[in-house]
Computed example of a mutant assay.
Amino acid sequence: MNLPLQKQEVNDVRSQTSRRGGGQMERLKIGYLLPTRDQSVRDEHDPGRLIAQTRGAEQLGLDSVWAGASPVSRPRADPLLLSAAAARSTERVALGTAVLLPALRHPILLAHQLATLDRLSGERPIAGVGGGFSNPSAQAQFAAVGVGFERRISRMEESIDAMRQLRSEEAVSYQGEHFSFEDVRIAPLPFSPGGPSISLAAHGPPALRRVARLADGWPPIRPRRRRTRRSARSSRLPSSRPRRPVRAPPPWTGRSARTRTRETRAGACKRAWSATTTRHSGSSPPSRPCSPVPPARPPTG
C-alpha cells in the first residue's frame, strides 16, 4: 500500500526545517501516524494493510511509525500487537504508541508487553502514554473496564513508576495506592536496562511538570508556539525537585485521510518542532518556517 506522501516531500521538509545545534546541522526526524481509527470507521479490519503502510514508511525514509490506542471510546486495532507485527516486517523505524493509557492496564502486564516488544524489535519501541481527555466517551471507556476516571492521573503516575521498577533484574515489590504486588520479576527483560523510552503527552504547567518528573519525552498536544513556550516556562521544576532529561519524539506528521485538513504537513511539522523548545541540546526553534508542500495524495491500494 502506498502512503499519502512521496520521498521527495519527506526530504524537502527535512531540508527546510533542520536546526542548528552545537554548530552542526541536526537531522529532522519525521514520524507517520497509522490510520488505525480510520480503517475501523470504514469497517475495514485487515491489520495487514497497516503493516504494509509501516513498511512503506520505512522505505520512504521516515524515522518512526505510531499507532493510536483506544479500545472502547474509539475502537481500533491494539497498538502493541500491531507494533509486534511491524517489528518483524521492518528493520529500522521506531515503533510508538500515540497514545496508550496506562491507567487502563496493570503495570505488570504492560511492562511485560513492552519488554517483549523491545526484544522483538531490537530496542525500537517508544511508549507514548497519556492520562486521557476529559469527555463523556473517555469517561465511558474507563467505566467499561472498571477504572475510576477521576483518579486516572494518579493511577497513570503509579503505573509508570511501577513499570520502571519492573525493569530490574531483581524481584520487585511495590506498594501503592492503586497497585500492590510482592516479589515480581518479569522475563524477558528489555535489551537495555532503561527499557523502552516513555513519552508523556501533556499540555499546561501541571502536566508539563509531570513530564519532567516521570517521562523521557514529550509529544505536545495541539501545539502552538507561544502557548507552549509559556507553559514550558511556567512549569519548570524547583531546583530541589528531581528532574529527568526530556526529549521530544519525532512529530506525528503523517496524518490520516479522514483527519487531514487544508493545512499542509509542512505546516504541522513547523508547529510541532517550534513547540519543542526544551530538547537536550538546548537549541532554538527553526529560524524560518517550513515551506508549504503539495497536499497529500489519498491512500491507494
Rank of each mutant, 00 (worst) to 15 (best):
residue 47 P to H: 05
residue 59 Q to G: 15
residue 279 R to H: 08
residue 130 G to L: 09
residue 147 V to E: 06
residue 29 K to H: 14
residue 261 T to V: 02
residue 77 A to D: 10
residue 205 P to R: 07
residue 178 H to W: 02
residue 227 R to D: 10
residue 254 G to W: 03
residue 298 P to T: 13
residue 112 H to F: 01
residue 131 G to D: 15
residue 264 T to Y: 06
residue 2 N to W: 07
residue 163 M to Q: 03
residue 218 W to M: 06
residue 282 G to M: 01
residue 283 S to K: 04
residue 127 A to S: 07
residue 54 T to N: 04
residue 76 R to D: 07
residue 172 V to F: 03
residue 235 S to K: 08
residue 284 S to I: 00
residue 17 T to V: 13
residue 270 K to A: 15
residue 228 T to A: 07
residue 7 K to E: 12
residue 249 P to V: 06
residue 131 G to A: 15
residue 100 L to S: 05
residue 239 S to G: 06
residue 180 S to G: 08
residue 216 D to F: 06
residue 85 A to E: 13
residue 64 S to H: 04
residue 250 P to L: 02
residue 280 H to C: 14
residue 19 R to M: 13
residue 222 R to F: 15
residue 265 R to N: 10
residue 243 R to T: 09
residue 294 P to F: 03
residue 152 R to D: 09
residue 53 Q to M: 15
residue 26 E to L: 11
residue 173 S to E: 06
residue 284 S to P: 01
residue 16 Q to G: 12
residue 178 H to S: 00
residue 298 P to N: 07
residue 167 R to K: 12
residue 140 A to K: 14
residue 80 L to N: 08
residue 93 V to M: 07
residue 209 R to I: 02
residue 45 H to N: 11
residue 296 A to I: 01
residue 176 G to Y: 01
residue 222 R to A: 15
residue 84 A to R: 08
residue 259 T to K: 12
residue 229 R to A: 06
residue 283 S to W: 08
residue 126 I to E: 08
residue 56 G to T: 04
residue 130 G to S: 04
residue 36 T to I: 08
residue 237 L to Y: 02
residue 84 A to E: 04
residue 111 A to Y: 08
residue 51 I to Y: 05
residue 144 A to E: 01
residue 8 Q to K: 15
residue 275 A to S: 13
residue 179 F to W: 13
residue 63 D to K: 04
residue 246 V to Y: 07
residue 24 Q to S: 13
residue 117 L to H: 04
residue 121 S to G: 00
residue 32 Y to A: 05
residue 51 I to S: 01
residue 184 V to A: 04
residue 62 L to W: 01
residue 147 V to I: 06
residue 103 A to H: 15
residue 24 Q to Y: 07
residue 208 L to I: 14
residue 60 L to G: 01
residue 20 R to Y: 09
residue 188 P to V: 09
residue 2 N to S: 14
residue 199 S to R: 05
residue 103 A to I: 13
residue 212 A to W: 00
residue 278 T to K: 07
residue 228 T to W: 06
residue 16 Q to H: 09
residue 201 A to L: 04
residue 41 V to G: 10
residue 69 A to L: 03
residue 118 D to H: 07
residue 252 W to D: 09
residue 160 I to G: 11
residue 166 L to R: 11
residue 187 A to N: 09
residue 88 R to C: 03
residue 284 S to Y: 00
residue 27 R to Y: 15
residue 127 A to Y: 12
residue 292 P to Y: 07
residue 96 G to F: 08
residue 111 A to E: 08
residue 300 T to G: 13
residue 46 D to G: 10
residue 92 R to S: 04
residue 79 P to I: 08
residue 271 R to D: 14
residue 273 W to F: 06
residue 244 R to E: 12
residue 135 N to A: 13
residue 218 W to H: 07
residue 142 F to T: 14
residue 12 D to F: 12
residue 277 T to V: 10
residue 110 L to S: 03
residue 227 R to I: 13
residue 139 Q to I: 14
residue 297 R to I: 12
residue 31 G to E: 02
residue 285 P to K: 00
residue 24 Q to E: 13
residue 76 R to Y: 10
residue 5 L to Y: 11
residue 102 P to S: 09
residue 284 S to Q: 12
residue 21 G to L: 05
residue 92 R to V: 02
